Computed example of a mutant assay.
Amino acid sequence: MTGGTVIDHEEAGAVRPLTLAWVSRQLDVGERVVGTEALHGGITAEMRQLTIGTRDGGTRRLVLRSFVDPYFVEHAEDLLNREADSLALLTGTDVTVPGLVAVDATAEQCEYPSLLMSHLPGRTVLDDKELEARVPLLARQLVTIHAVRPADRPQVYKAWTTADAVVPPLGAEQVAWAAAADVIRKPAPRYEGRFLHRDFQPGNVLFDVSPSSTAGPRITGVVDWVQTSWGPPDLDVAHCSSNLALLHGPAWGLRFAEAYEEAGGVLAATANERLYWRLLDALAFAADAEWVARPWRRAGRAELTTRAVEERLDAYVAALLDAPG
């Protein structure tokens, strides 16, 4: 939830020459890139799936992330190194992540800062089908992430908005938004820190939803670790809740916190503390409705216009203020 322009993946084109040469140097002897495909749904980077021809005539797949927007290029060294560290940390744990292949965080060899990783099976699921089954899976996955105890903590979380920066969407209930801004104007509650994904939401979770599966959906991996932070579990819960509220309606935003606790997660002790974290995240979407809505539409949710997302955000903020502790 930081500024920047939305990448036009439709015009992203093939992998650029210097980057392609860099990728080729990371491959095993006798391997080569034989195909590229743009991956859609991401917001901040160009994402491409690379098909690698192997020595025995088979293929394998890798994923390339490249920051091309000037804002993210400026911050790429921190973001990509943070992701590289997270992938290395989580490999072999109960959290399934891509394997790190290589990183060029300062574009010393590539046209743009880039990270190369292994490909995970599964796909993101953003529609309403089987949502009731997926929400508990998301909650259990987040509890597992928060159980990670790194030897070296990542940076402390950064808030993505402030009370004075909040601008209510057009037509929003002004009294409610003023009250919400006043909540986050107060000092942040004290918390017991945990390892956070910091952008945990349906767009960064891969599912196996094959029709042949009789067991229902299952998570195959979690991606996009560039925002990894140290902070309150409530903040990760709040971010996923906000996304669910905008994708599927305010009731699902409220439901996710319940699911997290049902999965064994521990949230802040008081209702006021929990409200602070949820509003701190939700209010940040006011400036970024189109930024998040555009990739959702590209992924098939054509009804999620900017206006529709803003209306859901307004309803969700009101629901948070009205919800019992």
Rank of each mutant, 00 (worst) to 15 (best):
A180Y: 04
F285I: 14
W296R: 15
H75L: 10
E74I: 13
A172Y: 08
G193N: 02
G35S: 08
V156T: 12
D69F: 07
P202G: 00
S213D: 10
L27T: 02
V209E: 15
Q201L: 15
H119V: 13
A271Q: 09
P113Q: 07
N81R: 15
F72Y: 08
R123N: 13
Q109Y: 15
V33N: 03
A76T: 06
H197S: 01
R190H: 15
W177H: 06
A215L: 12
Q109R: 10
A151K: 11
G203D: 01
S212Q: 11
A268Q: 03
G122I: 01
A287T: 09
A172I: 01
T96Q: 08
L116N: 10
G231A: 14
G122D: 00
P233D: 03
E273K: 01
T54R: 08
G42M: 01
A181Q: 06
P211N: 14
A12F: 03
S241Q: 04
E108K: 14
L79V: 05
M47K: 11
E192C: 12
A105E: 01
A133E: 14
G171K: 07
G57N: 01
T2F: 08
E108D: 12
R60T: 07
G92E: 02
G30E: 07
L126A: 02
G30T: 07
T161A: 07
R198G: 06
I219K: 05
P232C: 06
D85Q: 12
A238W: 05
P217H: 07
A286W: 00
R123A: 10
M47R: 15
V29G: 14
E173H: 14
P154R: 04
F72N: 15
R185G: 13
A251Y: 10
T306L: 03
D234V: 08
V63R: 04
A151T: 15
R25H: 11
Y276W: 05
A12L: 01
V148Q: 14
G4F: 06
A257M: 03
R61D: 09
P217I: 06
P324A: 04
E310S: 01
T96E: 06
P217K: 00
V223N: 02
V237H: 02
T144Y: 05
R294V: 13
T44A: 15
R123F: 07
F200P: 05
H9T: 13
E173N: 11
P202V: 03
L80E: 02
K158T: 15
W277H: 03
